[in-house]
């Protein structure tokens, strides 16, 4: 069989019913999906499109109305599949009366990990998430971003092969978002499979290898990100060090080949990139301020 298929759904359907068994919502309609080993798969869609329902069905938190979902070839109701899975829920549902160390130790115990291993993993993950300074603080004192990070840490406690991330970047500031994306890419490079769902297009675009777009419980689009986003009849030219004359020449070349110049000029950076650069500069040189006109002035306007 195809051994590199990690997640597979067959005709997966979920209908929410009320107390009397009357149909309320068809949250998911006959989903067929395959996620292969080592890829980052993004489930994309507006709110209420069935992304979270899919993840919950995969994990066995919900039972399918019909169809089947398999992870590592095991049914969703089989607890043994969880040995190799890490799950970060939409919001980090953690025990707020525990501190970071207790939290990770608790989840480590649920994986039946011996004490030495638990201690090692806990230490590594807290350092990785940059929460070393708050390891003994109860989670109720944590900021949203910190809780999110400890939530990710608990998802990684067992060094999982498959990681399910439900809206991984919600509640994170731009730096946190960037770090999360970097971490996701790093995990992929380590050979892990990642399934994430999000409604933030930028996140998905940046990290995912393949995406599926859900709308009203139906899969509308499926494919590789680069091929989906490539606009085949547009050519983007970016160059530096060209004088006015050279630019005119290029325009003429385009016209000669019956092309139409859409725009040409100094390219702008994205707001996200700019923000990040400024913050990084400010961390490298604390105390420096922007005077008068300059690239930093854009920050004030933004």
């Amino acid at each position: 069989m195809k051994s590199d298929i990690v997640v597979e759904t067959r005709n997966l359907t979920k209908v929410y019913r009320d107390f009397w068994g009357r149909q309320k919502v068809r949250a998911l309609k006959a989903l067929d999906l395959e996620v292969r080993q080592g890829e980052i798969f993004g489930l994309l869609g507006p709110n209420g499109s069935g992304k979270t329902t899919t993840v919950k069905l995969l994990l066995g938190l919900l039972f399918p109305t019909s169809g089947q979902s398999l992870i590592f070839g095991r049914d969703a109701s089989d607890v043994r599949k969880n040995e190799r899975i890490g799950y970060l829920p939409e919001e980090s549902y953690l025990y707020r009366f525990l501190n970071a160390e207790e939290t990770l130790d608790f989840y480590g115990r649920l994986f039946n990990m011996p004490k030495a291993v638990r201690r090692q993993r806990t230490f590594e993950l807290i350092e990785l998430m940059g929460l070393g300074w708050a390891r003994r603080r109860q989670l109720k004192e944590y900021s949203k971003g910190m809780v999110r990070r400890i939530g990710l840490a608990q998802a990684l406690i067992n060094d999982p092969e498959l990681i399910l991330l439900d809206e991984p970047t919600t509640g994170l500031d731009p730096i946190g978002t960037r770090e999360m994306k970097d971490l996701i890419l790093r995990l992929r490079d380590e050979g892990k499979t990642i399934l994430m769902c999000s409604h933030l297009l930028a996140d998905v675009q940046d990290v995912c290898d393949r995406i599926g777009i859900l709308h009203q419980g139906e899969l509308k689009e499926l494919g590789r990100v680069d091929s989906l986003l490539k606009i085949r009849d547009v050519t983007e030219i970016r160059a530096s060090g060209l004088n006015h004359q050279a630019q005119e020449e290029i325009k003429q070349v385009i016209e000669r080949h019956d092309g139409k110049l859409l725009s040409m000029g100094n390219p702008t950076t994205t707001l996200e990139d700019l923000f990040l650069r400024i913050i990084r500069e400010s961390e490298a040189h604390p105390g420096r301020r922007v005077r008068g006109e300059g690239p930093g002035a854009q920050v004030n306007r933004g």
């Binding site: 969880n82 829920p89 549902y93 953690l94 649920l110 608990q154």
Partner: peptide, 14 residues
């Protein structure tokens, strides 16, 4: 209700 059980039952807990 707090959904804290979600993070528990998605571990290999019976």
């Amino acid at each position: 209700k707090n959904k804290t059980l979600h993070t528990v039952v998605t571990k290999p807990v019976r």
